[in-house]
Design a protein around this nucleic acid. Structure first.
Length: 609
RNA sequence: GGCCCCGUAGCUCAGUGGAUAGAGCAACAGCCUUCUAAGCUGUGGGUCGAACGUUCGAGUCGUUCCGGGGUCACCA
């Protein structure tokens, strides 16, 4: 049982027995004791003072006395400052916890909940390569999915590919006009970049044409409409919707190139999906609901034939659902897809990882589903995240200020290589081992950097300073892991730490073998055990908040604690065998928890670095 | 303009209504013949955007204002 849960129950029982009143879990607070005071956990009793009509000191003292007497071997002592009751856990209890868990590689994982949750993330357009913003989305989505798995949920990772629309037609037109039959193979270009280049080419050409027209004295807005290349793109979209064979063929070919490129990037950064939805397959499916909504009066038709919903009652606007010409818009297909997700997978929850500029859109989607009487409307959850901005402002693909995902990954791996070579600690590695290490460290730095910040906050990426490898970073945590492995290699099989003098049965007082020698825990040893135990809560909190930064902050704090311990105390040359075994156990468990934490962030651990 | 999000050290960020607000980076001073110095220890650095209010207690909750961003398309 988690330490704080145990204390909470003990306090409730104690208060009821002492004062013959019943108490709830939120009648008082349990915090970690601040560094400057003695103790491990602090119970804040101010809120009870009124209810019990006692002075804070009297209450805290009585309760402290009770807790120590009734929980031998668990709560070793207390002290009182005002209404702060500071408790010190018993060494035996902490060591029993370590003994019971240090070899458990699944520590922190929860029992199955039976719930099925879909996490949609990445969801790119097929007209240009992935960029830094996608990376935040992908890492966030992947990590959230893993955190939900760890808390016992059945998770389906999905991706919705925006493979149709005017954007891809733009690339197609530009390719037809300017490529002379070139392909990714013939130019040795990654497919998504290849297609993206023609999207840029389209915009350049478009800009030129608009300028030519405005030079002739045509109004700019009119020129934007009249530019021939734009008209060609629009015509192509119509041709595509009508299934014109050569257009469909070109569309398939070019999307194929893009997917090949995306797959390469996904594989490299460790993203994976259980199911992929293509917008070209789903974009028509919303229309039926529009028809149904018209019938039951949820929606209404304007003179031009367009269909609308009035959401002003829910504090929103009127929203277009179907164009006058009968074609669907973004939200139309989203309704269909939302339903399909729930029907195909029988979901308990459907999470959308989408940028915060679409908060309103997602609110509208939920509201429409509600109006249509779809029972799942309140199981849709928008996990929104802030944009990644550059120090120079926003990223704009048309202005070439986008940080490309592949470029950034290359850069991070180069940086890892540079640091590693400078330090020269792994000169005996083979070429493959080195490449593996650079990827582990480079990606670790990048993922940690993007995940350590609360998702909902906007974040600034400084391309010049790039991403650090020191301090609050992925490599810092990875380094701590590698250091521990270095120690453990000396001892062969770490399970040889046979230390069966402590054990906890059913959350009761620890069983202690009286034959064994006992050593008092040193402050850093205590701190480390308490820090390890907190992983359990960190996982729960991260899952409740859908917030991987909780894990990043936790594991950094753990690594810091271990590093202090490491500097202060020797494992191999411990004062005696009892201490040595204890410290091996501490090291094994720290390594396990670091590995688990980083896994939840999509980061691997190196044995050496 | 309506609605939503954000504002904490020079920079990037933590901070379940509780004790003297914390990390990392940057700056400065120390620590490698002893398990990996991508590390550790210390110093300096704050009107928690502002003002009222609720409370025994507010960075945290409420109201108003200031500053930054998003959104309100027959775009996706």
């Amino acid at each position: 049982m988690a330490f704080t849960n145990f204390i909470r129950q003990a306090v409730i029982t104690g208060l009821e027995e002492l004062y013959h009143q019943s108490f709830a879990e939120n009648d008082f607070q349990i915090n970690e004791t601040k560094q400057e005071f003695e103790g491990d956990y602090t119970i804040v009793l101010f809120s009870l003072v009124k209810k019990l009509k006692l002075s804070p000191e009297t209450l805290a003292k009585s309760l402290g006395e009770y807790l120590v007497n009734r929980n031998p071997g668990i709560i070793a002592g207390y002290n009182v400052i005002k209404a702060f009751l500071n408790l010190t856990l018993a060494d035996d209890y902490l060591q029993a916890f370590l003994n019971d868990n240090y070899q458990n590689e699944k520590f922190g994982e929860k029992k199955p909940t039976g719930r099925k949750i879909m996490v949609e993330y990445s969801s790119p357009n097929t007209n240009k390569p992935l960029h830094l913003g996608h990376l935040r989305n992908i890492f966030l989505g992947w990590s959230t999915a893993e955190i939900l798995k760890a808390t016992g949920n059945n998770v389906v990772k999905t991706c919705v590919v925006n493979d149709r629309g005017i954007h891809i037609c733009k690339s197609m037109i530009a390719w037809q006009k300017f490529a002379n039959g070139a392909t990714p193979e013939s130019t040795h270009t990654k497919g998504d970049h290849f297609v993206g280049d023609y999207y840029v080419k389209f915009n350049d050409e478009y800009k030129n044409e608009v300028k030519e027209l405005t030079d002739k004295g045509i109004d700019e807005k009119q020129a934007e409409k009249d530019a021939p290349i734009m008209k060609e793109a629009q015509q192509m979209l119509l041709d595509w919707e009508q299934g014109k064979p050569d257009v469909v063929q070109l569309w398939k070919t070019m999307n194929g190139w893009v997917y090949k490129g995306f797959d390469k990037t996904y594989k490299r950064i460790g993203a994976d999906f259980d199911q992929i939805f293509y917008e070209s397959n789903t974009y028509l499916s919303g229309r039926e609901f529009v028809r149904k909504g018209l019938e039951d009066g949820s929606f209404y038709k304007k003179e031009d034939g367009s269909v609308w919903i009035d959401l002003t009652e829910a504090g929103m606007d009127e929203k277009l659902l179907l164009r006058g010409d009968g074609t669907s818009v973004y939200i139309t297909q989203d309704i269909g897809l939302a339903k399909q997700k729930f029907e195909d997978y029988k979901l308990d929850e459907s999470i959308y990882v989408i940028g915060d500029e679409q908060i309103y859109h997602m609110k509208v989607l939920k509201e429409i589903c509600k109006k249509l009487g779809m029972p799942f409307y309140d199981k849709i959850f928008h996990l929104s995240y802030g944009m990644v901005e550059l120090t120079t402002g926003k990223m704009k693909s048309r202005e070439g200020t986008v940080v490309d995902a592949d470029d950034l990954v290359d850069e991070m791996i180069d940086t890892a290589k540079h640091h590693t070579e400078t330090l020269g600690k792994v000169n005996d590695f083979t070429g493959d081992e080195l490449r593996q290490l650079y990827e582990t460290l480079g990606l670790g730095a990048m993922k940690f950097y993007l995940l350590r910040v609360d998702p909902k906050k906007r974040m600034v990426f400084n391309p010049r300073e790039s991403i650090d490898f020191h301090g609050f970073t992925g490599p810092f945590v990875q380094y701590t892991y590698a250091r521990i492995q270095s120690i453990l290699r000396k001892f062969g099989d770490a399970s040889s730490m046979v230390n069966r003098q402590w054990s906890i049965v059913n959350g009761q007082s620890p069983v202690v073998n009286p034959e064994t020698e006992r050593e008092k825990l040193l402050p850093l040893e205590r701190q480390l055990i308490i820090s390890l135990e907190k992983f359990d809560n960190a996982v729960v909190q991260a899952a409740e908040e859908l917030n991987p930064s909780v894990i990043a902050n936790y594991v950094f704090q753990l690594a810091q604690t271990y590093n202090s311990f490491y500097t202060e105390h020797s494992v191999a040359n411990a004062e005696n065998e009892v201490k040595k075994n204890l410290r091996i156990g501490l090291s094994v468990m720290t390594a396990n928890v670091i590995k688990s934490s980083l896994h939840l962030l999509g980061i691997q651990v190196p044995e050496r670095m």
